[in-house]
Write a protein that binds this DNA or RNA. Structure first.
Length: 840
RNA sequence: GCCCGGAUGGCGGAACAGGCAGACGCGAUGGUCUCAAACACCAUUGGCCGCAAGGCCGUGCGGGUUCGAUUCCCGCUCCGGGCACCA
């Protein structure tokens, strides 16, 4: 038993903090030990952590650092908590940039991509991110391509994949077809800035719309950010309404015009009908007098870009044309003119609408431009000065609907009427379209079919899969896939009839690759099928998926569709409908408000920080800088903030390694028995465990780091205080801090742990610390004494103080008395032990 | 236009359940160490008034509820995002 205050030898540390040496050592160690490999028969409870696998664009950027730091931290913490954590990674390695680079430089996309993967891998390893690298998947691996193609063929058999003619985006600058997502909101190409054109081509589609309802309904139960759910809901765009047929005057016996509306309750106000210019009935409906005008209009619309067609400005009187024909409103027999207008789209609903100008602003504007009648069927409130009225109100001019004020009720009644008369029916429409998956590009997974003049579309026999990409191709900016000019690839014999046939030269959208990779990760060694059912049952769904908000719609929706489609085809476990149970979307790293990107030249490479302050400091910075879901704008001050994190780690090092005690600085450690000051420090340590643990749980890493910094400051004051520190207390504090920081700054904590406990298992094999509830109990707190809501005094009181005691103490306070100035309190609100408010 | 999210010191941010606004970090100022610098360390740091004790003001703006509002309600402004002639 030592005497209080007597300095004793504590920890002795020779070197100073050398991040590069420490980080290299532990990265080698983890890899050699297979520390984060996990086998499928592991008996610990499973936990699947996944960061969206990256497109390999070269060395990691700050967005990667952020993303993979969040993921790695969770992997390490869950491992310490006793889970078998599945932490796989791979590369989304097909895509346009590699092909563009090939056109520019002549380097083959595979060579180019493999080199970029090496760079990115090296960055990820230097970050200290822990993965089971044995499970690595690259989209362009022949094995992965094989299963991609098998799945495609299965979907083809099931009618989930089909071919139809469709307008696609064509960029004249790039001389190539673009994916929808590569077309900016203003209709220009994201790369060249040229205005994207529409071209009609025969294309491959996935029938995602077959799952529209389920994809929408199931959003409800997902533990996803609301923002993302709302975006998906918008994108699917379900609208309920009715479809019904309008007879055309003079065309008895012929099929009528089918219209879709969400407001069947306003049908009595229909004063005209509008068809899309592409509507198949247009030629039949056009009268001889109007033929010239209609043909001219239709021809003009065809030359317009999508953007021109969809912009709401532009003179309305040039945007439509009268066909010369009339339809009959089945509700009241009214004779209404039939128009064409460019704003009615053939691709939504039935391509035809009933126009009710009184209750729809677009129809109102059109009616004004063409001098058409307007009949209100919903009475607007008194004093209404607007035009179309879409709110609630009593029905008027609507025969048997008159007087009804509830829109839902009126709709139901109108639909009932339509159905009972066999005129129409209730329908649901979606904004969501089928997924166009074919790309006229080389660097993607070939679509495994053959076009035979006699047999039509024939699948490449499964034993011939995968269809690989030939290497001996030339990359020229012709706008056509090099595959089309490769006779060896193109010309084949039909597997069915043996006659000459052509191979499909389109490749798959790269979103196909990312739509099921998370299933393949469960067992990438499976040789007989794309997804091992047992392994998928063990790991799926992903417990925590982490990635950027930019994938909120496309990738996440496609993956949800694929998971269901695979399940329904028996290719994945039937019960797994949702791929990602919990989703976290991190904020973007921006610079001057816009996204950092190679093309903007504003990339701040993480590598330079690895070389200076080290990966741990950079990781800590990304965690500390703000809420993980918020965007962060990289500024001139950012380097200093990173320095601050590095300074913190330096302080940690000096204390944990004993340098503080070596250099004096007033710090002492003694073997004395516990005094109140030591117990208080122990309690701080337990409080830290509690805070950091709950901060991890609620994704509040910035406050977790802050708590650790605060704690280290407290610990310094403690050991540098007049009594010095008690050895046991200091050891407990330092060890706990190292464990809690472990997932955030893994290298430095591993090194310090090993220095302090050379014989013990390494830090990453330790258990996650848990606070002792008894040590979280506090005896005294500061209570605030207010007069009229203003703080006048602060009192140290026991936590279990009663209301009466609290009131008495506050009223006895001289500061309170002074503030009262002799006035008699009207009311005293006591909320012990937090505050007492005296009201006069 | 519709639907989300946000606004707090010089800066990033904290305040988890209506109860001490500004934790933690950066920057700034002053100081210690040093021949000097770097590193490190110590102190101060929302604004205004005051020698001080202390006081007043303060969470985008205007109202409201409450003993008490950054937090809840109503009405705005600005910023960011999503959807948008979708019938």
């Amino acid at each position: 038993m030592g005497q209080a205050g007597r300095p004793v030898a504590w920890k002795v540390m020779v070197e100073h903090y050398d991040p590069q040496a420490v980080e290299a050592k532990w990265q080698r160690r983890w890899e050699a030990d297979g520390a984060y490999q996990v086998d499928n028969d592991d008996r610990r409870p499973p936990f699947y952590v996944l960061c969206m696998y990256p497109y390999p664009s070269g060395a990691a950027h700050q967005g990667h650092v952020r993303n993979y730091t969040f993921g790695d931290l969770l992997v390490r913490q869950r491992t310490m908590q006793g889970y078998a954590v599945l932490s796989p990674i791979g590369f989304d390695s097909f895509g346009l940039p590699a092909e563009n680079a090939a056109i520019r430089t002549g380097v083959h996309p595979r060579e180019f991509t493999d080199a970029r993967i090496q760079e990115l891998k090296s960055s990820l390893k230097r970050l200290g991110a822990s993965y089971d690298w044995r499970r690595e998947i690259r989209s362009h691996d022949p094995e992965y391509m094989r299963w991609n193609q098998v799945i495609f063929q299965r979907f083809l058999d099931a009618g989930l994949a089909y071919r139809k003619n469709a307008p696609v985006n064509w960029c004249p600058g790039c001389q190539t077809v673009l994916a929808n997502e590569q077309v900016l909101a203003d209709g220009t190409c994201e790369r060249s800035g040229d205005l994207v054109e529409k071209r009609d081509l025969e294309q491959w589609f996935f029938r995602i719309t077959a799952y529209a309802d389920e994809l929408l309904e199931a959003l409800e139960g997902l533990d996803w950010p609301d923002r993302v759910k709302v975006m998906q809901r918008n994108w699917i765009g379900r609208s309920e309404g009715a479809e019904f047929d309008l007879a055309v005057e003079g065309r008895a016996g012929e099929p009528g015009i089918r219209v879709f509306t969400t407001r069947p309750d306003t049908a009595f106000g229909m004063t005209f009908v509008v068809l899309a210019p592409e509507h198949p009935l247009v030629p039949a409906l056009t009268t001889a007098e109007q033929r010239g005008a209609v043909e001219e209009f239709v021809a003009r619309v065809r030359t317009e870009s999508d953007i021109e067609r969809q912009s709401s400005d532009g003179p309305l009187d040039k945007r439509g044309v009268f066909t010369g024909s009339y339809a009959l409103n089945p509700f009241n027999g009214a004779r209404v003119p039939i128009f064409l207008a460019d704003y009615v789209l053939m691709t939504y609903g039935t391509g035809a609408i009933m126009a009710v100008p009184a209750e729809d602003q677009r129809d109102w504007d059109f009616a004004k431009a063409y001098d058409l009648p307007i009949v209100r069927t919903v009475a607007p409130p008194d004093g209404w000065e607007g035009e179309a009225y879409t709110g609630e109100g009593p029905r008027i001019n609507s025969e048997w609907l008159d007087g009804l004020t509830d829109t839902a009720e009126a709709k139901a009644k109108a639909i009932e009427w339509l159905e009972s008369g066999a005129i129409g029916r209730r329908t649901v429409n979606y904004r969501l379209r089928d997924w166009l998956l074919s790309r006229q590009r080389y660097w993607g997974c070939p679509i495994p079919v053959i076009h035979c003049p006699t047999d039509g579309i024939v699948k490449v026999p499964e034993e011939q899969l995968p269809v690989l990409l030939p290497d001996d191709v030339e990359f020229l900016p012709t706008g056509e896939s090099p595959l089309r000019h490769h006779p060896g690839f193109l010309n084949v014999t039909c597997p069915r009839c043996g006659g000459p046939a052509e191979r499909e030269t389109d490749t798959m959208d790269t979103f196909v690759d990312s739509s099921w990779y998370f299933l393949r990760f469960c067992d990438p060694w499976e040789r007989s099928r794309p997804v091992s059912l047992d392994a998928a049952r063990r790991w799926m769904p992903v417990d925590q998926y982490i990635g950027g908000i930019e994938h909120a719609i496309l990738h996440l929706l496609y993956a949800r569709f694929y998971t269901r489609a695979l399940a329904d085809q028996g290719l994945a476990p039937a019960e797994i409908r949702e791929p990602f149970g919990r989703l976290f979307t991190q904020g973007m790293i921006t610079m001057d408000g816009s996204k950092m990107s190679k093309s903007k030249g504003n990339l701040i490479s993480p590598e330079q920080y690895f070389e200076t302050v080290g990966a741990d400091s950079l990781r800590l910075f990304h965690l500390f800088v703000g809420p993980p879901g918020d965007d962060f704008d990289w500024s001139a001050q950012t380097d200093q903030m990173i320095e601050g994190c590095h300074r913190f780690l330096g302080r940690l090092w000096r204390l944990a390694a004993g340098a503080v005690f070596e250099s004096g600085g007033g710090a002492t450690v003694s073997e004395r028995t516990a005094e109140p000051v030591d117990t208080n420090m122990d309690k701080e340590t337990h409080r830290l465990m509690d805070r950091v643990d709950s901060d991890y749980t609620r994704w509040s890493y910035n406050t977790a780091v802050a708590a650790c910094m605060e704690f280290l400051n407290t610990l310094y004051k403690y050991v540098q205080g007049p009594a010095g520190g008690r050895a046991e207390t200091v050891d407990f504090a330092v060890d706990t801090l190292l464990l809690l920081l472990g997932p955030m700054a893994p290298h430095i904590t591993a090194e310090l742990w090993e220095t302090r406990h050379p014989e013990a298992p390494p830090l990453h094999a330790q258990s996650w610390p848990a606070a002792d509830p008894a040590m979280l109990v506090v005896e005294t707190v500061t209570m605030v004494a207010q007069v009229n809501g203003k703080v006048r005094d602060r009192l140290e009181i026991p936590v279990d103080i009663t209301v009466e005691q609290a009131e008495a103490l506050v009223l006895a306070s001289p500061r309170v008395a002074e503030a009262l100035g002799g006035a008699t309190p009207k009311k005293v609100i006591a909320r012990p032990p937090r505050l007492v408010n005296v009201v006069v």
